[in-house]
Design a protein around this nucleic acid. Structure first.
Lengths: 340, 340
DNA sequence: GCTGATTGTGAGATCGATCTCACATATTTA
DNA sequence: TAAATATGTGAGATCGATCTCACAATCAGC
């Protein structure tokens, strides 16, 4: 009935052996007589014994749990990765504890701090700040395995899995320029975030390579939410000489742009051309469908999980850094601009 | 440097007291001299002491962790709920461990079984099967707090938070009938799932109340993924006398229907009217926007978390069942059908 | 028949926090 | 002043699994 509280002691008693012997039989190590082992196994089976992982963790210092700290679990990008990590961990009998930083460094610090006392084995982390990183440095230095995804932090020496943000952004803007656009707006999020910096660099580099001067008034910064992006879009397009094209740095921004432009009565791609960073299911449901820079989302989670599991297994190597290429998916949101 | 391994013993030694006294000072219980308490607190502060939660858990039998087992964390409905639960738990210094059942009962059982030995304090669960429930009954009987969301299971006596699936589905179909539709297709998922059953009942009841005979050939069953829903849609509409309207039981099905209909060159709402269960961000980005039955997604997570926390705090009450009403949001995907 | 390895088993320590109990002093109360 | 109560502290047990060590047996070799 009350299955609670069946301990090794109970099993040992039922099999008429000591706890030590029962442990040996169950974990098959050391010397145990054949008959004895059988008795123990049978007793364990009959009683429905399951080892108390907390007690094991107290001894070993490690719970079979890995922490995942994304910016926001509601972001489909992170949700997909969370799912993939979990599936991979499950195969190795580990569990996944998810806690969103909500893009707040302080919250990220608090989370790490509080999870540390839980004896979590390792972390997969999308750091909120590219600069405020002492807490991560500290964590890694203590020997806790950490894998950074989506974003890296300069001084931290650990494995990382990111994408070619600069190259992807450059390709997006190159494509707009190739279609005759020169007044290209940018919707970006706060510079604190690593990907924002890299994607902005790509934007700059593309313009520069085409001899187009950077016009700061075409760059709109906002928090990465649909609501903020709507406002930022409206700000950007409420002027006489509005941009002819827009590049958005993530999928939430792209959604905001879509809604902002629609509310202003501007249509895509007739009035404004649009390219977004990060592919998302919505992009193929709009009319026209949205041209995007796609990330290999499905590869990030499994790779990060594998890297972490290798570290947990004790593999000692120099930090490995994987940077996946991005891919331009041309759909219908960019039109060829004919010079006036 | 190595912050690892600062235990109560270290603090006690630094403050020149016994472990017992140090514990009393830190957790403020029992008698402790003022000066002594101060010394302990200072020592703890200086050493950067953090209690080992695993050790605490071994004694108390409970880790400050709650398990969330959704059907699929990638489903925005569950992702939103996960986020809300986590935020609420954080306020009570609890963490959230997320493991998707992937709508697989066996996996759900395995997860529960393996998490049990982790001394998880309680569970928030969206059971995959409405009938195969012994594992949940067992869990609840052992005294582990459980809150069911989105779906309930008959014999299980525990708190639950669900929505009025039958009423919502009925309202959707009523609305289609009111617009002149009688050949109304249904895209539903496997009957094992509770919500599928209730929504199907709503569909049936609405038709019946309008004197429309149920035509089994208008009901298409598929797994709840976009891909499967596309196929099911194509199957349903590849016939001479195809339905004039379609009701889809969840947002993934709705997406599948959208893509399926598009691939067949059928346009909404001219050729087919559409109402979907569950509102989702994509619904307002399509042209026309999709008419849906909205669930109060933002209320489910916080309420479920609160219920669970009350149980964890020891509240003993009869199981509470909350059923939120749904709301029809009329957008542009339904057209008035003029009788031929 | 005796030393030395091989095999099998249990007593007890350990991980870290907490709690019970016993034993001091200190302070009231009768 | 004696008895009763309040206050402060430490030794040791406990939670459950695992590991070290000591101690038996059993078996081999000489």
């Amino acid at each position: 009935m009350a299955q609670k509280g069946i301990t090794l002691k109970d099993v040992a008693a039922a099999a008429n052996v000591s706890r030590a012997t029962a442990a040996r039989a169950l974990n098959s190590y050391g010397y145990v007589g054949d008959g004895t082992a059988l008795r123990v196994l049978e007793a364990a089976e009959k009683l429905g014994y399951r080892a108390n992982l907390v007690a094991q963790a107290l001894r070993s210092g490690q719970l079979p749990i890995v922490g995942f700290i994304p910016g926001d679990i509601q972001n489909p990008f992170f949700a997909r990765i969370a799912h993939d990590i979990e599936a991979e961990l499950r195969r190795h009998r580990h569990n996944l504890l998810i806690a969103s930083s909500e893009e707040n460094v302080e919250q990220e610090k608090d989370l790490l701090e509080s999870l540390r006392s839980l004896s979590i084995r390792g972390f997969i982390l999308a750091p909120t700040s590219a600069t405020d990183s002492q807490h991560i440095v500290q964590l890694a230095r203590e020997g806790t395995p950490v894998v950074l995804i989506d974003r890296v932090v300069k001084e931290v020496h650990c494995d990382s899995v990111i994408v070619d943000n600069e190259g992807g952004a450059r390709e997006a803007v190159d494509y707009l320029v190739a279609n005759g656009h020169e007044r290209i707006g940018l919707l970006r999020d706060e510079s604190r975030i690593f990907t924002a910096q890299e994607r902005f660099a790509g934007y700059q580099n593309s313009l520069e390579s085409h001899g187009i001067a950077l016009d700061a008034s075409l760059v709109s910064v906002s928090r990465s939410t649909v609501e903020h992006a709507i406002e930022a879009t409206i700000r950007l397009f409420s002027r006489g000489d509005r941009p002819t094209a827009l590049f958005t740095v993530d999928s939430l921004m792209t959604q905001g742009a879509l809604l902002g432009l629609r509310s202003m009565g501007l249509s895509i791609p007739q009035d404004v051309s649009l390219v977004g960073f990060d592919d998302f299911n919505l992009a193929t449901f709009t009319d026209p469908q949205i041209t995007v820079i796609a990330q290999p989302t499905s590869e990030i989670g499994p790779l990060a999980a594998k890297m972490l599991l290798e570290r947990l297994a004790g593999k000692k190597l120099a930090p490995r850094h994987t940077r996946f290429p991005t891919r331009l998916i041309v759909r219908g949101s960019v039109s060829r601009l004919h010079r006036r």
